[in-house]
Structure formats: structure tokens, C-alpha cells
Simulated scan of single mutants.
Amino acid sequence: MLKRIEDSVGLRAAHDYSAVTPEFKGPILKKGEVIKEEHVELMKQHGHYYVFVEEEDTDWLWEDVAVVEFGKYIAGENVEVVLKSEGKAFLLARSKGLVRINRAGLMKVNSTGIFLLITLKTGSFVRENSLIGIIDMVPLKITRSSFNKLLEDVKMETPIVSVKPAVSKKAGIIVTGNEIVDGLKKDLAGPIIEAKLKRFDCSVVFYAQSRDDENEIVRNILEAVEVADVVVVSGGMSVDPTDKTPLAIARVADRVVFYGIPIKPTTMSMLAYKKDKAILGVSSGIIHFPEYNVLDVILPWIVSNTEPSREYIAELGEGGISKYFLEKMKL
């Protein structure tokens, strides 16, 4: 029931009422709180001259109930739904892992005019209790029959938000380059790769340097996959005559997922598999772009035992020019 704030003293607020200032954003009157005389002027100062108060009406769902029920309906594995202030539901990760978003489902939800689902991108790596999504509701309340119809409309797309759990893996690193083996140049790629692997809870159990020789690279990869779950090979990934890494990876692998990924930096990279062992060829551009590169994009999938689809790789081209690349290149 909608009433003037002056006439609502002694009644309970039906939902959160918020204030927004340069220093503060949040509820000044919470759902279920008894409205007191001191609330009247405070509410008016922030534009709330009328308030909805609680009433017995079982046919309506208020936002705080609806967003939680809806969140639980669309949530998949390893996703917890938690009610927050101002009628929002937070979707939290129950474990570390890979965020998966059903884009068709998200589009359907955000086209209802009732609920808004805001999430991280598919492929994001999160830790336990990380925020991965927020559900907002546009109206303050919805009839139970309308709510049930919305559930039916999105049923075929559920789950919409899920987290594929990650596991710690053993990793191998192979750094290629005649100049590295001959001691003419220090290995700068290896430490960068190792740091990235540790960020995703991988332990390095194999390290080798290889000349720009296809057979030698093949031998090193075969040796690495005997002890490691994932092998990262750096250097020699372009199309120069001396770049032999892609050929070597393709020889060892059962299947190649991609060669060339539409992101900047480190476009000339490659992902392949030998049975369930991932082999990731990375451009030597990681030396110039250590903070963000193909490792950040692909390792979340590898540690979560999920092979990225070709469609997903192709879609990375939209937004594939990273802010880091633009800043580093001074563009």
C-alpha cells in the first residue's frame, strides 16, 4: 500500500529506500523496519514523500523475495544467491573456477523488462566468494502469476550462470630460441609464464630450452606431457621460416583448437590437446606484455578442465583490443 510518509509512522516499510550523495549510497530505511517520526524529514530530504508499507497480499512478490527466487532458478553449479540491500541479489562463486554465462539466457532475462542480470564475462577466473553476477528488479513487486510465467519463459536457457571448478595442475614450460640456448639472450619468457601459472595454482614440474628445430621442440613437448597436465611453449609462434613451434605442437597434438586468437596482445598463439593434456603455444609478445596476454584468457579454461569452443574464440575479437595493449603501445 502506498502512503504519505507522514501517515506511515508506526507501519513497516515494504522495501528499502535509498539515499545517494557524493559520500554515501545505500538504504536509509530498510524493508521491514518500523517507520518512526525521525524518518519523516530524513526521507523527504532524499525525495521520498511517499512510501510503500507492508500489507497482507499473498498474490504479490516484493523485489527482495523475487530476486532471490529468480536467482536460485537461473543459478547453476557452484553459484550461491545472497540478498543484499536495495532489493538486489548477488551471485557468488562457491569455489574458484571458470565463469560460464549462457548468453541467450542472459539476453532473454534482460529483455523481460522485469529483471536485469549483470555478470562477469564467460571465461573469467574467480576465487571462492567472488561476485560473479547481480540481479536487479525494475518494478518494486510482481504478481506471482507473472513471476511464474517469467520462470517458464527462461526455463529452456537455465542454468544461466555457473562456475566450473578449477583444479591445481602440474605444468611444463618450454622456451624456444637459438639465442636462448646459445646464451646470447636471457630467458625472459619463462619467469612470466611461471608467474601466470602460479596465479592459477599450477606448479611447474618441467622446464626446458629448445633450439628453433621442429624435432627438438617435439621431443621436449613429448617429454613434458609425460609429467605435466599443461605445457606452455613460448617463442617461434609466427610465420617466419625459422618459427617451428606451431608445426611441432601440431605434430604432437591429437587436435588443434586454434592457431591465432583474435585478441591484442599475443595474437599469434595456439591451443592444442594431446588426449587431455593441454599444449599452449604463446607468442614471445608476452615479454613486452607481461601483465595481460593470452595466458590470462586461456589458462582459466585449462585449469577448469574445459575446452574453449571455436565460437568462443572467434567472439573474443569483439573487445579483443585490450586497454592494456592501447596503453602499452601509446595508441
Rank of each mutant, 00 (worst) to 15 (best):
K244L: 13
E216A: 13
N220E: 12
V252E: 02
R255I: 09
A250G: 03
A253C: 09
D229G: 02
R255G: 09
A253N: 08
V256T: 11
I249C: 00
D254H: 07
V230A: 09
G235I: 00
G260M: 09
V232D: 12
D240L: 15
V256H: 01
S238G: 14
T242Y: 13
I249K: 04
K244P: 01
P241T: 07
A224H: 08
V233D: 12
V225T: 06
N215P: 08
R255C: 07
S238E: 14
T245L: 02
G260T: 08
D229Y: 02
S234E: 03
S238L: 07
V233C: 11
R251H: 14
F258R: 03
V257K: 07
A248H: 09
V225H: 07
E226W: 04
T242N: 10
T245R: 01
L247C: 06
E216D: 15
V239Q: 15
T245D: 00
V230N: 06
A250F: 02
V232N: 03
V257R: 10
D229P: 03
V233I: 15
R219N: 11
V232Y: 06
I249Q: 01
F258D: 04
Y259M: 10
R255N: 07
K244G: 04
S234F: 00
V218C: 13
E214A: 15
V239T: 15
T242A: 15
D254R: 05
Y259F: 13
I217V: 15
D240Y: 15
V230I: 13
G236W: 03
D243N: 14
I249L: 01
E216V: 13
T245F: 01
V232F: 05
A224L: 09
A253H: 09
I221Y: 08
V257N: 07
V257H: 04
G236H: 05
K244V: 13
K244M: 12
A253D: 10
V225W: 10
V232H: 04
G236M: 04
V252F: 02
V225N: 09
P246N: 14
P241Y: 03
V225G: 08
V256Y: 07
N220V: 06
D229R: 01
A250Y: 01
A253M: 06
E214V: 15
D254T: 02
A253S: 14
A253T: 10
P246V: 08
L222C: 07
R219A: 11
D229K: 01
V230C: 03
T242E: 13
V233Q: 11
L247F: 14
N215G: 14
S238F: 10
G260H: 06
T245Q: 02
A224V: 07
V231L: 13
P241Q: 02
N220I: 06
F258W: 02
V256M: 03
S234D: 04
A248S: 12
L247H: 12
V233K: 11
A228S: 15
V231Y: 11
V257W: 04
V233L: 15
A253E: 12
Y259G: 04
D243W: 02
S234P: 00
I217K: 03
